[in-house]
Design a protein around this nucleic acid. Structure first.
Lengths: 184, 184
DNA sequence: GTCTATATTCCGATAGAC
DNA sequence: GTCTATCGGAATATAGAC
């Protein structure tokens, strides 16, 4: 049974990644929980406190993701990562990085700083996994590890965004071509 | 000398691509023009009228972009396209597709439909140019044209978003690796 | 920890004068 | 085409009771 504080974070995550940071209100969160506006402010005094807590939640979540998958092969780790984005796509939302990157000038400096930390965590992890796959012969690419990590990350998170506009098939096309390119 | 109506579109474009659709107000537009709130509503009665007009402006702009570059080689057309995104990156903004894709659930159906038209215009143009480059031997890739177009587009527009969070160098890394991959 | 009540500001939008 | 004036509502946020 999640606490009210956890439920608030969960709903904020839903709204921020489906509509955007500026587009949701404390009322959007309090209503489905059956509580009042002021109760949400008790847990997170300001909207930016909520934004910071959300990024912290994603950092924790990603650390657990890394641990849970560290024994897998590089190819399986990348596939699991891409499958995570596939579930984002199916939910009709975008990822935290994509959402906050377009909301960049609407979030405060604390949130920006923590988001930078989180984003580099993801890029660094991707770089390491890709490098390992290159060493073991599972992957084949000519870029520097960070450049290759950036290409995989930008491909997949933008595919989740773009396929909202065009077609679900476009997400599949991108996802499959990433795997094909890496393993060719 | 731009008309008020044109200046409004220009400012809306600035705000939507730097902050997001929900994050700007009619007051943001009227103030720098030295006019009142109500004058903006005269030209664009509702905010969604403004959003529709902005997408129409980008469609017109892209059609002119295509005509102006149609005599270039496929490699130069792609480079011009990537340079356009480079200027977006330098301005600290994101592209219209990136901005509205995360604002998707905050824009009305008319805007969504027109944005879908615009996005497919861009993807179709990229597909054609890439295919032509493949035919002439300028490019080398194994994907279907649309899949390759999607990879280029998602790479470059997400690089503009991601480099807001991390570092300007990350945009350069992605841009250069796109060209390198295509021409290798 | 949640409530009622409220302060304050801003929002998109409209009516009617000029 | 722009103005003044204003409406109705929603936003973030706080004070103080329970």
């Amino acid at each position: 049974m999640p606490s009210t504080k956890e439920s608030i974070i969960h709903l904020a995550d839903e709204f921020i990644r489906s509509r955007g940071y500026t587009a949701f209100s404390y009322a959007d969160i309090s209503k489905p929980l059956g509580i009042k506006n002021a109760a949400v402010h008790y847990h997170y005094p300001s909207k930016s406190d909520l934004a910071v807590a959300l990024v912290e939640w994603h950092i924790d979540h990603f650390e657990r993701f890394k641990e849970k998958n560290e024994s897998k092969s590089p190819a399986d780790q990348i596939k699991t990562f891409l499958n995570f984005y596939h579930s984002i796509h199916l939910s009709g939302k975008v990822c935290l990085i994509g959402a906050f990157s377009t909301d960049w000038n609407s979030i405060n400096e604390d949130t920006q700083g923590l988001l930078r930390t989180f984003t580099n965590l993801v890029i660094d992890w991707l770089s390491e996994v890709l490098q390992k796959g290159l060493d073991t012969g599972a992957f084949n690419f000519a870029n520097a590890p960070r450049a290759e990590a950036l290409r995989v990350l930008t491909n997949i998170f933008a595919a989740a965004q773009l396929s909202r506009i065009t077609d679900s098939q476009d997400f599949i096309l991108v996802k499959e071509s990433i795997i094909r390119e890496l393993t060719k």
